[in-house]
């Protein structure tokens, strides 16, 4: 996992497998970064994620709530095809935080 800062927020590149076991450490590092910087945008980049069960959904929802406390937003980017079904099943679409691949070039500016 890699956390980098940009002008408007934090980008977290998640890597490897996300399950109940690994999500705990990810959650702690991300929350520490959020609390330090209080960014307006938290980008969760899933391009390096090779496996994810519903713990990944819990991870996104939890960060969504924490960011909302600071008035910030979460963007979920670069979701690999294998994970799309899980994202869809979770109902996260209703929050409108997942960026389609085609939209990413515009928002990256």
């Amino acid at each position: 996992m890699r956390i980098s800062n940009s002008d408007d927020g934090i980008t977290v590149c998640l890597t490897g497998e996300i399950d109940h076991h690994s999500a705990r450490a990810m959650r702690e590092s991300i929350d520490a970064a959020i609390q330090m910087k209080k960014p307006s945008v938290l980008r969760l980049d899933f391009s390096g994620v090779t496996f994810m069960d519903s713990s990944g959904i819990g991870l996104i929802m939890g960060r969504y709530r924490l960011m909302a406390l600071y008035g910030g937003i979460v963007r979920v980017i670069n979701v690999p095809e294998e994970l799309e079904r899980m994202m869809l099943l979770s109902g996260l679409n209703a929050l409108d935080i997942t960026e389609k691949r085609s939209e990413q070039f515009e928002t990256a500016k």
Binding site: A23, R27, S54, S55, I57, G58, L59, L89, S90
Partner: peptide, 15 residues
């Protein structure tokens, strides 16, 4: 509190 999304069985059913 463990940030469980409550999706475990739904995922098993769907997959």
């Amino acid at each position: 509190s463990e940030e469980r999304a409550g999706l475990g069985f739904a995922v098993m059913q769907s997959f």
